[in-house]
Design a protein around this nucleic acid. Sequence first.
RNA 1: GAAGCGGACUAGAUGGUCGCUGGUUGCCGCCCAGCUUGGGCGGCGACGGGAGGAAAGUCCGGGCACCACAGGAUGCGAUGGUGGGUAACGCCCACCGGCCGCAAGGUUAGGGAAAGUGCCACAGAGAAUAGACCGCCAGACGGGCACACUAGCCCGUCGGGUAAGGGUGAAACGGUGCGGUAAGAGCGCACCAGCAGGCUGGGUGACCAGCCUGGCUAGGUAAACCCCAUCGGGUGCAAGGCCAAGCAGAAAGCAAGCCUCGCUUAGCGGGGCUUCGGGCCGAUCCGGUCUGCCGCUUUCGGGUAGGCCGCUCGAGACGCCGGGCAACCGUCGUCCUAGAGGAAUGGCCAUCGUCGCCGACCGGCCUCGGGCGAUCGGCGAAACAGAACCCGGCUUAUAGGUCCGCUUCAAGC
RNA 2: GGAUGGGUGGCCGAGUGGACUAAGGCGGCAGUCUUGAAAACUGCUGACGUGGCAACGCGUCCGGGGGUUCGAAUCCCUCCCCAUCCG
Length: 118
Amino acid sequence: MPPSSSKFPKTTRLLRGGQFQKVYRRRRSVSDRILIVHGCENDLEHARLGLSVSKRVGNAVVRNRWKRAIREAFRLIQAETSPGIDLVISPRRGATPDALMIRRSLKSLTQRLACKLG
RNA sequence: GAAGCGGACUAGAUGGUCGCUGGUUGCCGCCCAGCUUGGGCGGCGACGGGAGGAAAGUCCGGGCACCACAGGAUGCGAUGGUGGGUAACGCCCACCGGCCGCAAGGUUAGGGAAAGUGCCACAGAGAAUAGACCGCCAGACGGGCACACUAGCCCGUCGGGUAAGGGUGAAACGGUGCGGUAAGAGCGCACCAGCAGGCUGGGUGACCAGCCUGGCUAGGUAAACCCCAUCGGGUGCAAGGCCAAGCAGAAAGCAAGCCUCGCUUAGCGGGGCUUCGGGCCGAUCCGGUCUGCCGCUUUCGGGUAGGCCGCUCGAGACGCCGGGCAACCGUCGUCCUAGAGGAAUGGCCAUCGUCGCCGACCGGCCUCGGGCGAUCGGCGAAACAGAACCCGGCUUAUAGGUCCGCUUCAAGC
RNA sequence: GGAUGGGUGGCCGAGUGGACUAAGGCGGCAGUCUUGAAAACUGCUGACGUGGCAACGCGUCCGGGGGUUCGAAUCCCUCCCCAUCCG
């Protein structure tokens, strides 16, 4: 059953180390001032999200804030992005987790990534 | 009112909306077992849960799990006033001693240096059974001055005496006074400080108070070795257990003698002793124990890194009463309060409350250049920080606010 | 989540109670040699604050803070940072 547009169940997340490895091995990534996005095709009708937030970004509270902000942005824009892509998103080191900026950045980065994957 | 000390509490609130997570439950779909009851997975819906005072650092102490385990000695590590609390502690409480503060109070690794060993740089004469550089003192010798008498004064050299003075140092082997002496010195005496021993009184005790005697002096350092007392098995939930899936194994090591017993009798098997090898008893030794060939041990290599359990009812929270100075303990009553796993507990909006700044306004108050207060509007701020098996502490980070007790100073009565 | 090891000039690093704190090497600067450079050789060289016209002087600093000691890079406590390991 495909997920409805604004929900975020477990089927739209990457849960295994192997899935992350697959995305990294595809070696297709785009980035801007605040985010780095790795991408890879999957055989599903929808996109899936994985998060990789390094300890260098900040302490646990800052890392949680990043993850929530990116998840929220992904949840809101997943209907308009191209389906069938697995994404692994990492924040850049100097950036601050601002919800509006992340949503705008994520939208353009996923479009660029879809072009790159062909 | 000003300054300060100690302690406790809180960690914005309410509502709406969109999400996440696991629990209970209803419906639907698939799978397994099937006579039925059932079990598992997924989706949708409803109901009620969903971070902290430090969840942090991992600095201590436990519970729990696995491994190991007769015991003794040595070693290693930790702790260190006394008494209590505790499951335990390096924690807490009370008290004692030292230091700081006018005080409330704060702080204290606070056993032993008259068991032993080591060290105390530089400077200084001498640095721990001390030491004569300058100085002080008398003596011998030589020289000079003065020489009538007492025999004097000065300089130099020599070997002595002397710890009162100078100087060095973080530290120089008690302080003051009197006597004493060639000069001096606890050399003698008095007082003071400090020490040792004994006695008396108080206290469970650390210790306190007093008296007597002694010798006159004992340096510091044990967060140097050490001694004494007490405590301590190791590893950690990635412990550990079950299920599923999956690959590929290789190398090394694994005694000898004697006695005895059994059998299908010249071979095989069992038991005991001695020596030897190996493992374990955390490091060493004594001592003990297991084992020595067709299965074990060790090392290297390969494969998985999926699911379930452990996983939250516990030294549990709250309240009353009782015991105790207190930490804390006990009876009774009520309650169940997060369990994730690429890792949930959040985003947005509105209203209210707190604080700060700016502006407007008031028939409020005053020491009237201004300050305080009330009302309204706008803008801004709200910390430190995220459970990862669970508890008890410690340490560190922390915006704003509330309350309680106490001290000193000032004013009024 | 748990367990270990380590922080010394710009860099690598010795020093594990003794004075002006700091061995040695790399690097940097200046000089000699050269037409010029490289190599070689010789000498110098830490940062910050402060005083001074200058030469130079004084103070602080071994990740930060506190303690023990006459004296700490060294011993003890505590905090911060970095690196490694696990099933």
